[in-house]
């Protein structure tokens, strides 16, 4: 962790509209997350943690405030620029893995690399490297339906890191897993943060999962409540 903020939020706000009714979800969020940080976003349902994660990941747009991530002011990017930014800087890990069922594990992991100018051989090397990292070399040709939940999530992690993004965002990555598999995924993420210096922002309800992060950010009714450093 080098201390430079990779994520910088100022007076960030997000509201949804139900017809003409404004529903504020996030209000006045000021937050700095340094490069190489590992943060868990916590809070009760409806506190806005997933919305905050989505804003940081550039898949949602704020209603107000400044949002600088990986050196880019995301408010100033149009949809295609934002897509290009995501492909270069962000890796996604979802609660339900969201693998493409008609593609093998190898092909799922290769997907983000299709957006790069890499040739087939280089893509293959990168996929193999990512699959080795998640210890699934023997499952590369399996389809998602042929994998366990834990294996699917490991493929999803491989997909998230294959393009070597600076930032990993994870939305309840252990939410659909049993305790053993959840522990394995958390160990994997911890290793990515520790060994590769990936900045990780993770939404979780699970205190055990949150304990793997270095910091816990607590949200309450759309407002930043407190940031806690995790003591191990």
């Amino acid at each position: 962790m080098n201390g430079e903020p990779i994520i910088r939020l100022r007076r960030l706000a997000k509201s949804y509209y139900r017809e003409t009714l404004e529903i504020p979800v996030l209000q006045g969020i000021d937050l700095d997350i340094p490069a190489g940080g590992y943060y868990a976003l916590m809070g009760p349902s409806g506190s806005g943690k997933t919305t905050l994660l989505n804003l940081i990941a550039g898949i949602d747009r704020p209603s107000a405030g400044e949002l600088d991530v990986c050196g880019f002011a995301l408010n100033g990017l149009d949809d295609d620029e934002l897509a290009a930014w995501r492909s270069a800087y962000v890796g996604f890990i979802f609660q339900n893995y969201n693998l493409v069922p008609v593609l093998t594990a190898f092909e799922n992991v290769e997907l983000p690399l299709l957006l790069t100018p890499m040739g087939r051989r280089e893509r293959r090397e990168r996929v193999v490297e990512a699959m080795e990292r998640v210890n699934l070399m023997d499952r590369m040709e399996n389809y998602p339906r042929q994998l366990s939940g834990g294996q699917e999530q490991r493929v999803a992690v491989a997909r998230a890191i294959v393009s070597n993004p600076e930032l990993l965002v994870a939305d309840e990555p252990t939410g659909a897993l049993d305790a053993k598999n959840a522990e394995e995924i958390m160990a994997l993420l911890e290793g990515l943060n520790r060994d590769l210096g990936k900045t990780i922002v993770m939404v979780t309800h699970d205190p055990k999962a949150a304990h793997h992060a270095r910091h816990q950010i607590h949200l309450e009714k759309g407002v930043l409540d407190r940031t806690v450093e995790v003591n191990r």
């Binding site: 897509a83 493409v100 957006l115 997909r159």
Partner: peptide, 10 residues
Amino acid sequence: VFRAMGFRTG
């Protein structure tokens, strides 16, 4: 998911 990964509209 494709779009989140960076696939553009086109």
